[in-house]
């Protein structure tokens, strides 16, 4: 199997497109952001919430949500946490390196579902990455929405990602940022506690609010419950779930979740659609 087959240019969804890393940004310990440009120069169109399958040649392929601005398709942005062998190898790549991209895949955040409503974003640590394109787009179209609140939690004050964005968003008069950390050194003036407390503090009109939640699955239920206490019912809560997507196109079976394949029918779901199966253990 080692002879070089004939080069073919085609729209085979299993073949990656070469992209060049143009810049590497260290976010926090073990988390880095890549800015990428297609080697063929073509723009990369996507919608907030979609993900790519990212290949480091010779190492492997992983799903990574897109964290850039969908209005700037000339630059693809991925934020990656080194937690396994592939992501650890990726952490060693420098600007100029070539990686493979397949995508965009998956169901995007339904931004139109929030038009005319208050919007609350609930997330923590690297969960801000998949929400960032949506937040940017909501702020682009700020007049379409009511209040905009961002609840973002991290482990400590050195684990805050996208700090520049958070500062910029916080500086806007039309956006509320509730940043919370689990612990901080004495004298820290910010909020310390769980994301749930930030949701409780958010100034939103619950029954007229749409929530976009990106937390680990262990915490998604808590976020939905806390939003429920604020009057945001599950039919207005959009969450992302996580399975081990391998093909990204619904053909390999790995990310099956009941009647859906997360890679094409998700990873964004309205919580009431999945509530029953979500509570079945090991499903």
């Amino acid at each position: 199997m080692d002879a070089m087959p004939a080069p073919v240019r085609h729209a085979d969804p299993m073949v990656p497109r070469p992209f060049r890393i143009t810049r590497v940004i260290r976010e926090i310990d073990g988390v880095f952001t890549w800015r990428l440009a297609a080697v063929d120069g073509a723009p990369f169109d996507f919608r907030p919430g979609q993900f790519n399958m990212v290949t480091q040649f010779g190492v492997g392929e992983i799903p990574v949500s897109i964290s850039g601005d969908c209005r700037r398709p000339e630059t693809l942005v991925h934020t990656i946490r080194a937690v396994g062998p592939v992501t650890e190898a990726m952490q060693g790549l420098r600007a100029g390196a070539i990686v493979g991209i397949r995508g965009p895949f998956g169901r995007p955040w339904p931004i139109d579902a929030a038009i005319g409503s208050d919007v609350i974003f609930v997330t923590s640590t690297i969960g801000l990455a998949p929400l960032r394109p949506l937040i940017l787009e909501v702020l682009h179209r700020r007049q379409d929405f009511g209040k905009v609140v961002i609840c973002y939690g991290t482990r400590g004050i050195h684990d805050i990602m996208f700090e520049e964005d958070l500062h910029a968003w916080r500086a806007r008069f039309d956006t509320n940022v509730h940043l919370t950390v689990h612990s901080a050194p004495s004298g820290y003036r910010g909020r310390v506690g769980g994301v749930a407390a930030a949701i409780h503090a958010a100034r939103i009109d619950g029954p007229a609010t749409v929530a976009f939640v990106c937390r680990s699955e262990a915490l998604t239920r808590q976020a939905v419950n806390t939003l429920g206490e604020r009057g945001v019912t599950p039919d207005r809560v959009w969450v992302t779930l996580e399975r081990n997507m391998k093909c990204g196109i619904g053909l390999c079976g790995h990310c099956q979740f009941g009647p859906s394949f997360m890679c094409k029918d998700g990873p964004v779901y309205r919580f009431d659609e999945i509530e029953a199966l979500y509570s079945v253990r090991e499903f």
Binding site: D29, A82, Q91, G194, S216, A218, L219
Partner: peptide, 20 residues
């Protein structure tokens, strides 16, 4: 309850591998 959920969050958050 919220403290317990915070423990869950801290316990389940993947431990990032530091750059060598």
């Amino acid at each position: 309850a919220s403290s317990r959920m915070r423990i869950v969050e801290l316990a389940t958050e993947p431990r990032p591998i530091r750059a060598r």
